[in-house]
Simulated scan of single mutants.
Amino acid sequence: MSVLIAIPARYASSRYPGKPLVKLRGASGKSLSLIERSWRAAKEVGGVDRVVVATDDDRIKAASEAFGAEVVMTSPDCTNGTERCAEAFAALGGGYDIVVNLQGDAPLTPHWFIEDLISGLRDAPDTEIATPVLRCDGVTLNGFLKDRKEGRVGGTTAVFAQNRKAMYFSKEVIPFTTRAYGDAEETPVFHHVGVYAYRPDALSAYPSWPVGPLEQQEGLEQLRFMENGRSVLCVEVASKGRQFWELNNPEDVPKIEGMMADMGLD
């Protein structure tokens, strides 16, 4: 099966304008933009035929082409990354069996997260959309709870059935828990990793569906699939000692840089 990775990136983020061009310092002190680090993460994934940056912004286009990325220009009317990926896929003329949406704010996504995601979708022929989930340790869960307590939207959490089909995604911490967990202890909470793998028919249909009340309330694009009766497969991935965090707020920059320093990532 042929695989395309599209990295949707927009400049006008409501929470963090200009986020794709924010510099992140690696372990050796090298500073690279968020979009370049996300592109580098995509290029490490095995079995991928093509990687493109999908944007509507000339500044992101210029920066991406400067470090060697292929860029597909998309409409400023795209409301989320999935719509942008669908438009990029159409602009390229289709021709891929699986399209992966690696959102441009996840530079710490290890290659095996995406490889396992692609394998999970390949092994489930009746499934149209898949996304990774990572069981939270105490450090991650406490970070989520701290963000919410201080009024920030941190990571997204997921709950799913025994067949791994998603039941719900939320920016709140679900399931509800009051127990205190140690830093390295496993918890019942799963962090939704902001990557998606789609089959072309589902991706192409997505922009034509109306935004439902759950997507509108949570601001989570994957809920549109569920509100239109499409199941989403949750593929559990393993951290293998790798720290993971997404850049959602300015406060996340030093946190991610600290993780990169701890892991020796440049």
Rank of each mutant, 00 (worst) to 15 (best):
V72Q: 03
E251I: 10
T140M: 09
E65L: 11
T109P: 00
V100C: 13
T156C: 08
L203F: 12
F67L: 09
E44C: 04
D77A: 12
Y198E: 12
P250F: 10
A91K: 15
M73G: 07
F244A: 01
Y16T: 05
D252Y: 06
L145E: 14
F225C: 03
G229S: 07
L32K: 15
G151A: 04
L223K: 01
I129D: 02
N163T: 12
L141S: 10
V99K: 11
M226Y: 02
S119V: 10
L32P: 00
E172Y: 03
G229D: 05
P207A: 03
S14R: 15
E128G: 13
Y206P: 03
S14N: 07
G258N: 12
M226D: 02
Y168L: 06
R10W: 11
D97W: 12
A69M: 06
T157K: 05
N248V: 10
K43D: 00
M226E: 00
F176T: 12
T177C: 14
V193D: 05
T82H: 05
E65W: 10
G94Y: 12
L108D: 06
P210V: 02
V193E: 01
A90S: 15
D58I: 13
L34I: 05
R50S: 07
A63D: 15
Q103G: 05
A27I: 08
R25W: 01
L220T: 00
G120I: 13
I35Q: 02
C234S: 08
A66P: 04
S64M: 08
A88L: 10
A63P: 01
I129G: 04
P254F: 05
V235P: 08
R224N: 01
R135K: 15
G194M: 10
E251D: 14
Y196A: 14
D137C: 13
A12N: 15
K61M: 13
S119A: 15
G241W: 09
S204F: 02
E70Y: 06
T109S: 09
V235S: 03
S14H: 12
E172K: 08
A69F: 08
G138Y: 14
